[in-house]
Design a protein around this nucleic acid. Sequence first.
DNA 1: CCCGTTGCGG
Length: 600
Amino acid sequence: MQPKHLKAVLLACKDESTITKIHAFMIKTNLSTHRNSVGRIIASYARINDIASARKVFDELPQRGVDTFNVMIIACSRKESPFEVLGLYNQMIKESVRPDSSTFTVALKACVGLKDLKLGEQVWHKAVDFGYENDVFVGSSLLNLYAKCGKMDKAMVFFDKMQRKDLVCWSCMINGFACIGQPREAVDMYKRMRKEGIEEDEIVMVGLVQACANLGDSKLGLSLHGYMIRRNLDRDVTVQTSLVDMHAKNGHMVLASHVFKDMSRKNVVSWGALISGFAQNGLVGNALEFLVEMQSCGFEPDSVSLMSALLACAQIGFLKLGKSVHGYIVRRREFDQVLGTAVIDMYSKCGAPSCARALFDRMDSRDLISWNVIIASYGVHGYGMEALSLFLQMIETKLKPDSCTFTSLLSALSHSGLVEEGQYWFDLMVSEYKIQPSEKHYACMVDLLSRGGQVEEALELINSMKTVAGLAVWVALLSGCYNHKMLLIGEVVAKKVLELNPDELGIHALVSNFFAMEEKWDEVAGVRKIMKKTGMKKVPGYSLVEVNGDLHAFLVEDKSHHQHENLKSMLDNLYQDMRGTRGLVGMMMETKQPSSSPKQ
DNA sequence: CCCGTTGCGG
């Protein structure tokens, strides 16, 4: 057999035993001494994914040239074994085998996999030593390393120094900027590329679409999509998935669904993009509907779709479905740190804090996020002391509380009226944990103080702020002034709030209520006028009640429920009972009769 | 001289 025939024979091999037989034959006929013919054997093993056999042949060779090393290294790279790749690379250097462009390229890719910038730079310096400073493959791999390590400044410096740039280099830059949340720079990079007369491909477009999604400029997103259709750059699954995500992030779920329906091939990622889009836009029913639909199309939900499903359940408090998603996750053994925390959050938001706690206690390991979630859970359910106790347990472990932890803690303490504790931990957050208080922290503190009637102290805190107090802070103060009938300060604060042009109906309602308390009817009319003029979204008040896993929605003034009359009379009875109880408590507390004209 | 080696989605 001729060596050139060997290649064809080996390419046809589908199983390990045939390759082994050919290998034995080669040794018997002395063919194995032919230049890199053993490399072909190794490559064949690698092709059928039998890395162990490939490695065995490789290790048994008396001496190995660069080509043999490369075959082995590339096989390991495909198998995503960065440690093995770098081990082989080091072995090459030790055995004084001269690496080439492919070796350095693959070694750098391994460093990207390990997110090891330092090691990557060492590999790069070696590549320079061996004369590959101007190699596009090595260069683009270094760019990719910088991009994946978030070092776009370094990438930019190197990129500008590159003598030759291929499309991959541009793509690394555009994608890199998009990934680290600098969409403007990504778009600028793309414009520069086009100016230099370079044609884009689908992969470049993915980065650009991502950048567009993060810009939140829905007009730009639409024109980009249009351009892609004209240039026929929208026919790839990955591109289409990124388009689904972009339209979803811009709030265009109709468009996102349209792109999705138009896809000739779908996979779990594209389903995940659609479902997460629905969940994040609050279209909970659609999210859950497509989670089911995805399964009937033969795709098992993965962690992303399950996260979206949990988010959807949490948003509407659909405990029963949340539980079944939890069960599904456990059965599929998908339960990990991230999903576990999402399940805990779901139980908390569905009004089952004890389930959340039980799960938290049973977790194998707890990271900062899981602690933050459980502390917030106690906070929103009004258990300030328990939140504080958990916080203390948390700092007993090695974990350092972050800005979010303190937001949850301070808000928990505020809602339970634990003023002193709140002040203590706020001070410690700054002095001990070196966390700069954010607008949210100040808003919590102002709420804490003014809720307890210490409006002047709250005002003092605002004056001590290094940054300019924003809307959230002033609204918290106004709410305190309203509840404690602090007319003088409140009036100034109310005007301040209006100056900041809030776009929420609730805030205007608070301002209006405050002026009404002062009996300043002109001001009340003024606020009402603003509300009407700006056409603020009136989200109808509604509540969802779950009975045996069925959801019942009740809108304001909605009488469509089939048991409306029964429910109404039941509520009337309850209301009568409540008034009776309130009257009793009222009589024990004070001699005066409780107010007899309930609102609403 | 050729080949192999680099960039993509929720």
